[in-house]
Design a protein around this nucleic acid. Structure first.
Lengths: 345, 345
DNA sequence: CTGAAAGCGCTTACAG
DNA sequence: CTGAAAGCGCTTACAG
């Protein structure tokens, strides 16, 4: 009465209904019915009943039973569905190779989530179901919900500030300054930042660093020249470039917060007969394959996914034994890919 | 004596060494020492011993203990480390969204592997540790090793033929024919295929389809015009284009087996003052972001990762209850992205 | 050919 | 504040 049963069917139930023993059911369901010489008829009855009762084996019970020699770290990687791109793949690779270098077994569970709906997978984070979690692409709302919970596993946020969880980030303020530095030149008169509406602190700091860099160098930049977009696409990039061009004086230096805007930005400049980098200097955030082989090659700056993966693994391993009351906060330097579009050095 | 113990430390051992009970150790290690009011001293002793003995909790035991209401399918996705790109991310997304549509819980474990070394992770496939496996990027050698084993879970190969495992593929012969059809025109005189050395049947069939299509239309194509590369990169693409250009008569139509060659191929044509598509028509295999925004936009054909993910999930769910003696083989139609580079339709 | 029982490693009432 | 015991769902010797 009191005791709640699990929702799913278990082997025991199948056995009871059929009036056979658990082992018989287990063996048949495990595909070893023939080798153990269970009668064909019994096998069929078991299989039919399993189907009828919609039986699904509990993988965790099986694994426990098999008692693996070397228990792996089970690491959940939460990634936004709209960010499932090559950067995610790079991160996975980084995590894999870090685990090889450290010679520790890792099982990577990738858990996509819809922005704003992270907590739909909240049960994964509680009850010690995993060794640790890495969460990327968090929105402010998701983070608020997340912070409400109480977790006993290490949780690592990417590019987000938190007093409660471990944070791995790039120093974006400095990145903004540095990007301006790469593009600055005596002839550069104005600058602009093309970013997003979504209230992301990390990006704001990049913008701030960029603007302060401009101030230091006497390059004009005004908040109302900057453009804030809803979304990243070719079309938005084109439109953003048009808007900026309505204001800035040439030559100008632009820091663009997402490489998926690159095609549109570059084409707009081209359509207006503006030369890159002579008239417009450009650096994009995130280094995708489109940039390097553009004419001219486009400069970019990217998150060091590879190193961040290694640090994340370090934290999870450490948290395995250490009691970590104070969350770790680590800033990595970004990766700069300086090519022609930002002007000659 | 007989009985083998697991390699790792268990809570029981810690408790024995410390002369306390398992529950005490469990509670402290679970981070609930304070709320259960275990003395600070005991807590410290437990924590220290756990560290000393290098204790790592068995996640599977924990999960079993928590007896989740709804047991998920645990699906391992094997992916080659050198192929961890946006296509993998797209596939993960396809699998995730398919699981949502079907309303069935899926835990995706992504297991990167080095080509030629798949079986280093072979234990994951045996002993019913997972509900099913999807293997992408298999080399011939890896497949041979794989076929030797005996598995009771559904294993699904991507773009590989097998009599033993389920196979999800695109009809590449037809793809080759179809690509030629898109590029064929009265003025096209010759054609060439740029591919790889690696003996991949799927690609060979694409080449064959392409060549037979040429034959049907009286377009000249000779095996020694075709180029087979070691690797995919800008440089190899450039080099390949140079080699082909030493032979073919213009205008010509090329089917190029990997989009990462695109930059080099396009630049080589450009450097020789050849126009796309007037002099050279091009279609690439795999649709990456570089293609669409090239000048001119490049045509491509790609694997329908999204649909394949859905079919893969179907198979795994089906195999959960059904005894599937005969492996399923399913051919999906590829996705064509026909743009300017293949000539006007 | 089939069944009863042990046990994988953990957590959690419950009793003291 | 701590310990003994039950049990999560499964598989596998072992005995019949």
């Amino acid at each position: 009465m009191e005791e709640k049963k699990t929702a799913g069917t278990q082997i025991k139930e199948i056995a009871e209904r059929l009036g056979v023993s658990q082992s018989t059911v287990s063996v048949v369901l495990g595909g070893r019915g023939d080798s153990i010489r269970i009668s064909k008829e019994t096998q069929k009855r078991v299989l039919d009943m399993a189907r009828e009762m919609n039986y699904r084996p509990n993988i965790y019970a099986r694994r426990l039973r098999h008692a693996e020699e070397d228990v792996p770290y089970v690491i959940a990687v939460f990634w936004r569905t709209d960010g499932l791109n090559s950067r995610m793949a790079r991160f996975i690779r980084g995590l894999y190779e870090a685990s090889e270098r450290k010679n520790c077994r890792v099982e990577m569970v990738i858990q996509p989530y819809k922005p704003g709906d992270l907590m739909a997978h909240g049960d994964m984070l509680s009850g010690n179901r995993i060794s640790g979690a890495i969460i990327s692409g968090l929105t402010t709302a998701d983070q608020q919900e997340l912070e409400k919970g109480d977790y006993s596993i290490p949780i690592i946020l990417f590019e987000r500030e938190s007093a409660k969880f471990h944070c791995l980030m790039t120093d974006t303020f400095r990145t903004g300054e540095q990007c301006l530095k790469y593009m600055a030149a005596p002839e550069v008169k104005t600058a602009a930042f093309i970013g997003f509406n979504n209230n992301n602190r990390s990006e704001r700091k990049m913008e701030a660093g960029f603007i302060f860099g401009c101030r230091d160098r006497g390059i004009k930049v005004r908040e109302d020249w900057n453009v804030y977009l809803e979304y990243s696409s070719y079309e938005y990039g084109y439109e953003a470039a048009e808007k900026v061009l309505a204001h800035v004086e040439l030559p100008s230096a632009w820091l663009v917060a997402d490489c998926r805007l690159a095609g549109g930005v570059v084409d707009c400049c081209h359509d207006r007969n503006l030369r890159i980098p002579e008239d417009i200097r450009l650096i994009f955030f995130e280094d995708s394959g489109i940039l390097k082989y553009n004419k001219p090659p486009l400069s970019s700056v990217d998150v060091p996914a590879y190193e961040m993966a290694e640090t994340a693994l370090d934290i999870i391993v450490l948290a395995g034994t250490q009691q970590m009351d104070i969350p770790i906060r680590r800033e990595h330097s970004p990766l700069y890919f300086i090519r022609e579009s930002s002007g000659k050095q």
